[in-house]
Design a protein around this nucleic acid. Structure first.
Lengths: 195, 195
DNA sequence: TTTACAACCTACCTATCGGTCGGTTAGAAT
DNA sequence: ATTCTAACCGACCGATAGGTAGGTTGTAAA
């Protein structure tokens, strides 16, 4: 057989890239097909329709990518510094294009949550996983933290601020505002410690 | 004359509502026309094309709405408490629909910044105006604040977190996560004070 | 009363979208 | 060598989008 799995994977990866750049709705199948050098028949052989392709991208590309990205940041001895280094590395090392494209999770949340229940539930699930990952690791070092904090609330706030910062950098089209907000986010995170 | 200005205003207001609910691209002119009970010819008499209609909505509806919303929150004697009360009122008084639709500025920033320069510049301008509004008023009470803070950085962070919280509430489809993040945001804002 | 033009109407245009369907082809199994 | 089917192809479809053009109407000014 012609390597079906390779075709499927190529479609998924290029779709993930296109969706990241243009959003789900604005991403046209014809554009994906052109980049993949694959026919429409091939795509519809592997995926029932555009929505199912979107779900597959979310589950098979974005979800593992996300967990692999955040886990090391937070599963170190000191999650406070781990998070700060993670965010700092983002504006120091990330290319401007990457930053301006925003976080795929946040982008899809904004675009699709209200109009498609399948996306909404997948996004909500991812957000809860991410929240638990962060809050469990903050809880782990609770003895070092101020006693007036609610770790789950803090975890949601951190993610929200991060997403807000990537939104800001879209309109400025450079890293400056992103960097500003991330710096303040790090300052906030460090203030969680007993001072 | 048949009241041209009234027609124009009706188109603007209904467009603002539709764009808030569906986003700019997903908002169809035919849908606007149906709600306005106005013909396509009338719309194209008042606006050159869809993009120009979008710009007009941004400038004539969203911009003044935004300034009227944030100004009173921050131009009180105590902007720290002013902001906290403003945010708190948002989840206590705001309808669930309103909250789940998100902030129009953030929505358009996410959707349009990358694909249309006209929108991007208008959004950036609005964000800078908003930042100045907040940072000037924080500066005003600088003597009450910690001396390690950068008011502009703090102002961007506040707006980013607020936008991030509205993004979160979209996927949860209720106010719970919104409320959580807003509470933490208020806690953060109050910690700006010398303790 | 006539004129002139802003204001408005409607039928139509083209482009593009997601999706379908009948047919072809590669290659493993018999 | 033949058969069978997963894998793939591409012309075509209907729906809808934004946009246009030519005609009509209301009304203020001359």
């Amino acid at each position: 057989m012609r390597d079906a799995e390779l075709t499927r994977q190529k479609i998924l990866e290029i779709s993930a890239d296109e969706i990241h750049k243009n959003g789900f709705i604005a991403t046209s199948l014809s554009c994906i097909l052109a980049r993949c050098e694959v026919s429409k028949g091939a795509l519809y052989h592997h995926f029932k329709n555009k929505m199912e392709l979107g779900y597959a991208v979310f589950e098979e590309i974005y979800t593992p990518m996300f967990l692999e990205l955040w886990q090391p940041a937070v599963e170190v001895e000191d999650p406070i510094e781990g998070l700060c280094e993670f965010f700092t590395a983002m504006y120091e090392e990330g290319s401007c294009d990457e930053i301006v494209c925003g976080c795929p999770l946040n982008n899809l949340c904004q675009e699709m949550s209200a109009i498609d229940e399948g996306f909404r539930l997948r996004i909500l699930n991812m957000q809860q996983q991410l929240n638990q990952l962060i809050s469990l690791n903050l809880q782990r070092v609770a003895s070092q933290l101020r006693d007036d904090i609610d770790v789950s609330q803090v975890a949601y706030f951190i993610v929200a601020s991060f997403h807000g910062s990537s939104s800001l950098s879209k309109s400025s089209k450079n890293k400056d505002l992103f960097e500003k907000v991330i710096k303040e986010l790090c300052s906030y995170i460090r203030h969680l410690r007993i001072s």
